[in-house]
Design a protein around this nucleic acid. Structure first.
Lengths: 189, 189
DNA sequence: CATTTATCGTTAGCCGCCTAACTATCCGCC
DNA sequence: GGCGGATAGTTAGGCGGCTAACGATAAATG
């Protein structure tokens, strides 16, 4: 994640202090939020650095996984359209064009026109792409296991539970969620 | 985070199934990892979308915060060098040049040569920059509070605790962490 | 059947981030 | 005191995101 976060998170006292100046600042919420962003970013980097050793970007990896997963599930039909891939990996179709360009240039993926709908293309994993993916996956799985090793099994459960609470909240309404507005706060919900 | 993650996380049964094929796949670890990335990404987008309404990027915001925080703490000296800013926000110096260019173009920040060391520059918040920041912060704080609202106070504590466990693990060694390698695992290190 | 509307993939252009190289300056060491 | 190595900031070039617009095709609608 190409992100960008304050490297050293603020200490809790500082948040308490800042909360005196900004009544809207909820110290424990801010602390949780910043730690979430920071840790998520770091976890992202962990896998990214691994993928980089296989000359694959996160985006490319997502595409390969989607194609491979589809080929696993659907039996024969291991093709997907760029639009489906884009939606599946949470990226715009324009971006997907670029990703497929790169992957096709590396010979990991193949484009072919759809025979029924001439607007569409189909994207398919090449043997080389599948081979590459099978090289990447085991160490990738090990990285994830390694990173989560400090969490016990019950801790992982609660971790996922708490993450899901936040995630569904975020999915609730992507825009204009707070709506408190000091003087006009009558609309109590 | 310009990231990129599978939009719909795999269900646990699928992970269990996949684990039969890949012995390295730890289902609960993978689940926790994917949820972490997904939620972190979503949280990132929440603040990013807010900052966008103020025509500020995450990077720019980090810079403004660093300058403002420094001006709060240090008393008078509200200047920082690009290198310090880069290190503080976890970005390369080259990137920082671009960020400062943009901010300076918007009049939120000012560059001046350091009077002692002629290699260095100093970056300083303009009054306009501070004003802009003070416009951004309260709703920003409200967003964070809103996002974390579903977590109770004790839940937030455990959340931060678990995040910290993962974070310090990730910080442990950024490269080559798994090192299992079945047959050649002698180099114990 | 003709025309509008929607969808698909691509292109063009912007921006943030990276690495690698460069210039200018400072510092340490003979 | 001059010279090599470190350091500051910038530049150049690449890449992966994004939005907005486009031509081509399909589907809906009159």
């Amino acid at each position: 994640m190409p992100l960008l976060m304050l490297k050293d998170l603020p200490r809790y006292e500082n948040l308490l202090e800042a909360a005196r100046e900004f009544p809207d600042l909820d110290p424990s919420a801010t602390e949780a939020f910043l730690h979430l962003l920071r840790t998520g970013d770091e976890a992202f980097r962990v896998v990214e650095s691994h993928l980089a050793t296989h000359a694959i970007t996160q985006g490319g990896f997502s595409v390969l996984m989607a194609l491979w997963g589809c080929c696993q599930r659907e039996g024969e039909d291991s093709k997907l359209s760029p639009a489906t891939l884009a939606e599946h990996t949470g990226v715009t179709r324009a971006t997907m064009t670029g990703l497929i360009d790169t992957l096709e240039g590396d010979g990991l993926v193949r484009r072919a026109p759809d025979r029924d709908d001439r607007r569409m293309m189909t994207v398919e994993l090449t043997p080389r792409g599948e081979k590459r993916l099978l090289q990447i996956l085991p160490p990738h799985f090990r990285r994830m296991a390694w990173l989560m090793a400090p969490l016990s099994e019950p801790e992982r459960k609660t971790f996922v539970r708490l993450l899901n609470k936040v995630l569904s909240r975020a999915a609730d309404e992507p825009d204009a969620p707070p709506a408190p507005a000091a003087t006009v706060s009558r609309a109590r919900r």
